[in-house]
Amino acid sequence: MIAQGFKLLIRSFMDFVFISECEICGKYLEDSKMIVCKECLSKIERVDRFDIERKFEEKFAGGFISKAFSCFHFEENTIVQKLIHEMKYNNKRSIGKILGEILGSSIRDEHDFITADALLPVPLHKIRKRERGYNQSELIALGVSKVIGIKVISDLLVRVRNTQTQTKLNLHERRENVKDAFKVKNKYKDFIVGKKFIVVDDVITTGSTIIECANVLKQNGADKIYALSVAIA
């Protein structure tokens, strides 16, 4: 804990000493936790509707996900990849909330999403959350909530196994890795029945994590489950 606090102090000092500039246009950044300005962020290419529908069919057809939406493509060596990396691993939490607000603005006219009962961030295991200090999916969900006004329930879903990172796993390995990794917290057992939920993650790659969350929610009586992410691979 002391070592983690020291790292945060060093980061804060570096932010104070060095002026942050947008990595795209070079403009001064008022928020040193960002790496691009809002103007450049707004110009990043979005996933079009046809592509979203195609990827939805590839990843979720036949399962419990009724609808899915993502803002950006996730590709290597892009500004989107760098934003998500900085958010997850370099304590740049404001990136998560800003990306969440962009995501929320993109769905505020979507009836299925805005009539959901709650936003559910994909949970981190308590060990990983303690190491990182926060859950990036929760930050994104809070940004979405700010725009569409749906509450975030961060502890309804619990990760009961500290699974390995999915990054280098194939589809089969990813599914096995997250199998039985989640459960619904007991205090929400009655609340969940008949409700509609949006499961929020940073990136959807194969969809395995979202699918496993949806399975658990359905087993506990949820009506509909939607998936929402900043980016999709």
Rank of each mutant, 00 (worst) to 15 (best):
Q81E: 13
K82T: 12
L83V: 01
K88F: 06
Y89Q: 03
N90Q: 13
N90C: 09
N90H: 14
N90Y: 14
N91Q: 11
N91C: 07
K92M: 12
S94M: 07
I95A: 06
I95K: 06
I95P: 02
I95Y: 07
G96T: 10
G96Q: 07
L99N: 05
L99W: 08
E101Y: 14
I102L: 09
L103T: 12
G104Y: 07
S105R: 10
S106Q: 10
I107S: 00
R108G: 11
E110D: 15
F113P: 00
I114H: 06
I114D: 05
T115G: 02
A116L: 05
L119Q: 04
L120I: 07
L120D: 05
H125S: 09
K126M: 14
K126F: 15
I127H: 14
R128L: 10
R128Q: 10
K129L: 13
R130L: 12
R130A: 13
R130D: 13
E131H: 11
R132E: 11
R132M: 09
G133D: 09
Y134A: 15
N135K: 10
S137N: 10
S137L: 10
E138A: 15
L139A: 02
L139T: 01
L139F: 03
L139C: 03
A141C: 05
G149S: 05
I150H: 01
I153S: 03
S154H: 04
D155Q: 14
V158G: 03
V160I: 15
V160D: 14
R161W: 14
R161I: 15
N162T: 00
T163W: 00
T163S: 01
T165V: 11
T167Q: 15
T167V: 14
L169G: 13
L169Q: 12
L171K: 15
L171P: 05
E173I: 03
E173Q: 13
R174P: 00
R174M: 01
R175M: 09
R175A: 04
E176T: 13
N177C: 06
V178E: 02
F182G: 01
K183N: 09
K183Q: 09
K185Y: 10
K185L: 04
K187T: 05
Y188F: 09
Y188D: 01
K189N: 05
D190H: 04
F191S: 11
F191E: 10
I192P: 05
G194W: 06
G194K: 07
F197S: 07
I198S: 06
I198T: 10
I198K: 04
V200A: 07
V200L: 06
D202R: 09
I204S: 01
I204D: 01
I204M: 10
T206W: 06
G207K: 07
S208F: 05
S208T: 07
T209S: 11
T209I: 11
I210F: 02
I210W: 01
E212Q: 09
C213E: 00
